[in-house]
């Protein structure tokens, strides 16, 4: 009887130690946005635990540097962020407050994903604040292009392979699967949107340029006068004329913006306002990267078809 108990005890002990050692092997990753978190989960699988600072419906420009985020970063092995100054208001405060040497710039646990993509809308010439909320290194919303998601996934797989060489094969395999999934869906999304002839749109903020480049959608104006600067009545009148002259049928804006101005233009011109998630989790249906893109494409398809 004693022998049996001892065997059971040892079996449990072995199980416990195995489980805890497997848990201990997980790479703890903090990302700034939910899109990066979703792609990282796809690549890292069971070998990573991932936490995003921004929630899907939040505007990542204006996240508060809450002390609880410093605690998250304090325990992280790896920080992955979008870059191009998307997080400029708050990320350096969090890194400083986290007091974790691993995630500081130039350390192996620090990954700026913008180095993996080719930025669009890099402003030329001298910049100053009269130009609004400009990003000198380019538009930071590159996550909205599925082709860029592949590049992001590649950079993440490279980094995970570097930090955890033992499981490199798994990361590469997961990457191949992710790329396959994206490519399969991308051709479907393109064929659905390519059927639409008039794809001229007005946007509230310049969030969507990478999405539009991917799907050949024609952005002909922004409701904001300048990035981050609300429209004047004169600017709104100009946008109204643009809508009417170009037979624009759709205004697009992200979930985290107030729809006051798009609604006003809708009421004056009959143009349809489409509210889209700019990140995974922005709406309930957007549970991961693929479902977010599917949601966006379906909403656009319906908006163009029904208007």
């Amino acid at each position: 009887m004693k022998k049996k108990s001892l065997t059971i005890y040892l079996a449990f002990l072995f199980l416990f130690l195995t489980v805890t050692s497997v848990q201990a092997k997980k790479i703890s990753i903090v990302t700034t946005t939910t899109d990066i978190a979703s792609i990282t989960r796809e690549i890292g699988g069971n070998f990573v635990s991932v936490d995003s600072i921004a929630k899907g419906g939040q505007d990542p420009h204006y996240i508060q540097a809450k002390p609880s985020y410093m605690v998250k970063l304090n325990r992280a092995d790896l920080l992955i962020y979008q870059g191009l100054q998307l997080e400029i208001e708050w990320l350096s405060l969090l890194i400083e407050g986290a007091r974790n040497p691993k995630v500081r710039p130039l350390q192996p646990g620090h990954l700026d994903l913008s180095s993996a993509i080719e930025p669009l809308e890099i402003p030329l010439g001298d910049l100053d604040r009269s130009m609004g909320h400009v990003h000198p290194q380019g538009n930071p919303h590159y996550n909205l292009s599925p082709s860029n998601a592949i590049k992001m996934a590649n950079a993440i797989a490279d980094k995970l392979s570097l930090l955890d060489q033992e499981n490199e094969i798994v990361y590469r395999k997961n990457l191949d699967q992710f790329v396959l999934n994206i490519n399969e869906r991308l051709s479907n999304w393109k064929s659905r949107l390519n059927k639409i002839s008039n794809k001229k749109v007005i946007v509230f903020h310049r969030t969507w340029i990478y999405l539009f480049t991917e799907f050949e959608i024609d952005q002909i104006g922004t409701i904001e006068k300048l990035p981050g600067v609300p429209p004047t009545p004169m600017h709104l009148a100009k946008i109204k004329n643009l809508i009417e002259q170009n037979n624009v049928r759709v205004i697009i804006q992200a979930v985290h913006y107030d729809s006051k101005f798009p609604d006003l233009l809708s009421s004056k011109t009959g143009v349809k306002t489409v509210i889209l998630p700019a990140f995974v989790g922005g709406v309930l249906e957007a549970t991961n990267y693929l479902s977010t893109m599917e949601y966006i494409v379906t909403k656009l398809e319906n908006a163009f078809s029904n208007s």
């Binding site: 929630k55 419906g57 505007d59 508060q64 979930v255 985290h256 107030d258």
Partner: peptide, 11 residues
């Protein structure tokens, strides 16, 4: 105490 509604941080 600080309260910021999710998705409406700017407002």
């Amino acid at each position: 105490f600080k309260h910021k509604p999710l998705g409406r941080e700017g407002y």
